[in-house]
Amino acid sequence: MSIQHFRVALIPFFAAFCLPVFAHPETLVKVKDAEDQLGARVGYIELDLNSGKILESFRPEERFPMMSTFKVLLCGAVLSRVDAGQEQLGRRIHYSQNDLVEYSPVTEKHLTDGMTVRELCSAAITMSDNTAANLLLTTIGGPKELTAFLHNMGDHVTRLDRWEPELNEAIPNDERDTTMPAAMATTLRKLLTGELLTLASRQQLIDWMEADKVAGPLLRSALPAGWFIADKSGAGERGSRGIIAALGPDGKPSRIVVIYTTGSQATMDERNRQIAEIGASLIKHW
């Protein structure tokens, strides 16, 4: 067993022997301040990774656009098919120029040779490549099948209805392509620590998230040296922004954090800054 596999296998073990965790309302004060600064709703939840206990939450059962955070769930569904012998990570998928959609920095470079399922998941999570996500959605049967996968996990809230990039439209009061912070946090925890996926697939999923290259201005910008984070960000229309993450000190994750916002007129930089400040408060009061 590799060191990384050992780390993920012992996530519940280490967490069980940690000192009790206590909620700190100071972080919620910052979440509410972010709402004021952005002029928009902000949803927040913080779960203990081992027990699933909610440590703090704000608007945990209000719907927010998922945006690209759905790509972690998508690759979880792909990995479940791999575990069941219905898919192979090494299978190569070929596609054409007509398949390319807006923001496809990886797939646009491989029109000639195609990409493997493993490479597509890596591109979808680490670079948020939209064509990679659409190609992977095709392998599982489309958005409705991802929703069905989530329902089978016990998540009857999260739903995907459309493809990239239309799913980022974020129309107010439109339930399409949305989740709730509580539902997303619980589902992410199941994917990373539950028995739904094999140990190898859980490790692969967290490795992809740990290698995320496009979430630097968010929670990662607030992390002290030595902290662990595996995350996936999302951005959408109407001032929408979000991030889902597993993080913790001492090089291992111990909490799940989900943050979503929508309806702001603020710039992307300002949305990023507010999420980073929430992260800084979380870490300060850990």
Score class of each variant (00 low, 15 high):
M1L: 07
M1F: 02
S2I: 15
I3D: 08
R7Q: 14
R7W: 08
V8M: 11
A9G: 11
L10H: 06
L10I: 11
I11E: 03
F13I: 11
A15S: 15
A16K: 06
A16P: 09
F17L: 09
L19G: 14
L19K: 15
L19Q: 15
L19R: 08
P20C: 05
P20A: 05
A23P: 07
H24Y: 09
H24A: 15
H24N: 15
P25G: 08
T27G: 03
T27W: 02
T27E: 03
L28V: 11
L28R: 08
K30C: 15
K30R: 11
K30A: 12
V31T: 06
V31K: 01
K32V: 10
D33Q: 15
A34Q: 09
Q37E: 14
L38K: 06
G39R: 14
G39L: 11
A40E: 05
A40S: 10
R41I: 09
R41S: 09
R41W: 07
R41P: 10
R41G: 05
V42N: 04
I45N: 03
E46R: 04
L47F: 06
D48N: 07
D48R: 04
D48L: 04
L49C: 08
G52A: 07
K53Q: 12
K53D: 10
I54H: 11
E56T: 12
S57L: 09
S57I: 07
S57M: 13
F58S: 10
F58Y: 15
R59P: 00
R59Q: 06
P60L: 10
E61Q: 14
E61Y: 14
E61R: 13
E62K: 06
R63T: 09
F64W: 03
P65T: 04
M66F: 09
M66T: 06
M67L: 09
S68H: 00
S68F: 00
S68Y: 00
V72D: 00
V72P: 13
V72E: 01
L73C: 08
G76E: 01
A77Q: 14
A77S: 10
A77T: 10
V78Y: 03
V78I: 09
S80G: 11
S80E: 11
S80I: 10
R81A: 10
V82T: 09
D83I: 03
D83N: 04
A84L: 13
A84C: 11
Q86T: 13
L89S: 06
G90N: 13
G90K: 15
R91A: 07
R91K: 10
R92N: 09
I93M: 03
Y95V: 08
S96M: 10
S96K: 11
N98S: 14
L100A: 04
V101A: 11
V101R: 08
E102N: 10
E102K: 08
Y103Q: 04
Y103I: 04
P105I: 07
V106I: 14
V106L: 14
E108Q: 10
E108V: 14
K109P: 07
L111V: 14
L111W: 09
L111C: 10
T112Q: 15
T112S: 14
D113A: 12
M115R: 05
M115P: 01
V117E: 03
E119C: 04
E119Y: 03
L120W: 00
C121N: 02
C121I: 05
S122G: 12
A123V: 07
A123D: 02
A124R: 00
I125F: 02
T126Y: 04
M127K: 08
S128K: 00
S128Y: 00
D129V: 00
D129K: 00
N130R: 00
N130T: 03
N130Q: 04
T131P: 03
T131C: 08
A132R: 00
L135D: 01
L137M: 11
I140D: 02
I140M: 07
G141V: 04
G141S: 06
G141L: 04
G142M: 02
G142K: 04
P143I: 05
P143G: 06
P143R: 04
P143V: 07
K144D: 15
K144I: 13
K144R: 14
E145T: 11
L146V: 11
F149L: 08
M153G: 08
M153Q: 09
G154A: 07
G154Y: 05
D155R: 00
D155L: 01
H156C: 13
R159T: 09
D161N: 08
D161K: 03
R162P: 01
R162N: 11
W163C: 12
E164T: 00
E166C: 11
L167M: 12
L167N: 07
L167F: 04
N168F: 03
N168C: 06
E169S: 14
E169G: 14
A170N: 09
I171S: 14
I171H: 15
I171N: 15
N173T: 12
N173H: 12
N173A: 14
E175S: 12
R176T: 07
T178N: 03
T178A: 05
T179I: 01
M180E: 15
M180S: 15
A182V: 15
M184Q: 04
T186R: 14
T187W: 04
R189D: 08
K190N: 14
K190C: 10
K190A: 13
K190L: 10
K190F: 08
L191A: 06
L191D: 00
L191S: 04
L192K: 01
T193S: 15
G194P: 11
L196A: 15
L196K: 15
L196W: 14
T198P: 07
L199R: 12
L199P: 15
A200L: 10
A200R: 13
R202Y: 05
R202N: 06
R202H: 08
R202W: 03
Q203P: 02
Q203A: 12
Q204H: 11
M209K: 00
A211Y: 08
K213N: 11
V214F: 05
V214Q: 07
V214S: 07
V214Y: 05
V214H: 06
A215F: 03
G216L: 08
P217A: 14
P217V: 09
L218P: 03
L219I: 14
L219Y: 03
L219F: 09
S221Y: 10
L223T: 13
P224G: 07
P224N: 06
P224V: 04
G226Q: 09
G226D: 11
W227Q: 01
W227R: 00
W227L: 01
W227F: 08
F228I: 08
F228D: 03
F228W: 05
I229T: 03
I229D: 01
A230W: 03
D231E: 04
K232A: 01
K232F: 00
S233N: 01
G234I: 00
A235E: 03
E237Y: 12
E237H: 11
R238H: 15
S240T: 07
S240G: 12
R241W: 02
R241G: 05
R241F: 02
I243R: 00
I244E: 01
I244H: 01
I244G: 02
D250Q: 15
D250I: 09
G251F: 08
P253C: 11
S254V: 12
R255L: 05
I256R: 00
I256K: 00
V257D: 00
V257A: 06
V257Q: 01
V258S: 04
I259S: 01
Y260G: 00
T261M: 15
T262G: 05
G263M: 07
Q265R: 13
Q265V: 12
T267R: 11
M268P: 07
M268I: 10
M268V: 09
D269Q: 12
E270L: 10
R271H: 07
N272D: 09
R273V: 10
Q274E: 13
I275L: 10
A276Q: 12
A276F: 12
E277D: 12
E277P: 02
E277R: 12
I278M: 09
G279Y: 03
G279L: 04
G279R: 01
G279E: 02
L282R: 01
L282P: 00
K284H: 10
K284C: 10
K284R: 14
H285I: 04
W286N: 03
W286G: 02
W286E: 02
